[in-house]
């Protein structure tokens, strides 16, 4: 018998194919290394590109709490407390994305050993902030994104993309100035607590999308 955490982890892991994200991080770092070899003066820009790419990968899953209507319907029919499910999912996603976050500085420092002392702190700050900000911003926009998802894919992309950029901005800020990381962590934690209840309430009020009979 598996724990709820493990079952939810499997549900997400199978859907998202984490190994593909690890592979993408490794390929990206190899590509940037090659570019850096031909243009050593661009090292700072390449590092920033790496931060943006890996930041996006860390953040994206937090915008899809319940991947499809069927999962939402399961929780609704079982009558479970959605805020509690969101909290559990948050822990599952943090566990899952945390593994990827470990790979982000590790890959970079392994392939760019000369600059590890400069990069490690900044990339660690980026990973921390991305993981702290993503659940909060993801939860804040999720019920709205979900509603629009059934209406216009373009609008969904706009809302989701805008929120991702916001989260990314926060992450980059931490990359450029690691000292801001603790402050952002505290802010995210403060706002995150209310988000679970607020998003769960919005999801509780949703109607099942029904085909015209």
């Amino acid at each position: 018998m598996h724990s709820v955490h493990r079952l939810l982890f499997r549900l997400h892991h199978r859907h998202r194919y984490r190994w593909a994200a690890f592979l993408a991080v490794a390929l990206m770092v190899l590509l940037l290394r090659k570019l850096g070899h031909y243009a050593p003066e661009a090292h700072g820009t390449l590092r920033l590109l790496y931060a943006i790419g890996s930041g996006m990968m860390l953040i994206a899953p937090f915008f899809e709490w319940f991947v499809d209507d069927r999962e939402w319907l399961c929780y609704r029919l079982w009558g479970v407390d959605l805020a509690e499910v969101l909290r559990r999912k948050s822990r599952v996603l943090l566990h899952q994305q945390g593994l990827l976050a470990l790979a982000v500085p590790a890959c970079w420092t392994a392939l760019h050993p000369a600059s590890w002392h400069v990069d490690l702190l900044r990339l660690a700050a980026l990973a921390l902030i991305a993981l702290a900000a993503a659940p909060v911003i993801g939860l804040a926009v999720y019920p709205v994104v979900r509603r629009w998802l059934r209406q216009t894919p373009m609008v969904t992309g706009f809302i989701g993309g805008g929120a991702q950029l916001l989260a990314l901005g926060l992450a980059l800020l931490s990359y450029l100035q690691p000292l801001l990381a603790p402050l952002l962590l505290v802010l995210c934690r403060h706002y995150g607590r209310q988000m679970f209840t607020r998003s769960a309430r919005a999801l509780d009020q949703m109607e099942l999308p029904v085909e015209h009979p």
Partner: peptide
Amino acid sequence: LEDLALMERLTGREQLELAARL
């Protein structure tokens, strides 16, 4: 319901276990 509430990416046993635990 007519709209089956099932999680496609779990096995049947995992789906039953998840419901039971929740």
